[in-house]
């Protein structure tokens, strides 16, 4: 009986601890953190998107997120701008990735602006460009660069 209580206690504690460590999946539909779906504890989280339309009719947006990693890193984003019919708005920056810094265990943000007033909606993609070349859960975790 005592053993059973001990097991239940250990299990409960481990569930609580893992709950504290887990990173909430972004519910912001306009932002996709590439790789977040595959890993439950992906270190880069997009928390919210704040946006408005400026005096020129361009959508201006700011993506806010958090870097749960103990490392400084450079991530990249790209934006698909869509018109009222959901068709991509032509831009010479389409498919271009733009770098931005994320500091260890800190919030990050970057601002975007539509290429044309025709853009009425957008989808932002964030990626770690090094993701394919090393395991993000490798021994680099916790190191200060």
């Amino acid at each position: 009986m005592n053993k059973l209580i001990t097991y239940v206690f250990i299990l409960t504690i481990s569930f609580v601890l893992s709950g504290c460590e887990s990173i909430a999946t972004s519910t912001e539909p306009r932002v996709l953190v590439v790789g977040q779906q595959q890993y439950s504890k992906y270190p880069y989280e997009a928390k919210e998107v704040v946006y408005s339309i400026n005096s020129g009719g361009f959508i201006e947006a700011q993506v806010n997120g958090f870097n749960h990693k103990h490392n400084y890193n450079k991530l990249e984003y790209r934006v698909d701008w869509l018109d009222s019919k959901g068709i991509l708005v032509h831009s010479n920056r389409h498919n271009q990735w733009t770098e931005f810094p994320v500091f260890r265990k800190q919030t990050f943000s970057f601002a975007i602006i539509a290429p044309s007033p025709k853009a009425t909606d957008f989808k932002v993609y964030i990626r770690d460009p090094k993701q394919n070349s090393y395991n993000i859960y490798s021994t680099h975790e916790g190191e200060v660069q």
């Binding site: 005096s55 020129g56 009719g57 361009f58 920056r93 733009t98 601002a111 602006i113």
Partner: peptide, 19 residues
């Protein structure tokens, strides 16, 4: 050149100077 041009254009669009 891409980075410099993108930053300049974004800044111009934000400033309202070309509207």
């Amino acid at each position: 050149f891409q980075k410099a041009a993108n930053e300049a254009v974004d800044s111009m669009l934000r400033s309202g100077a070309i509207s």
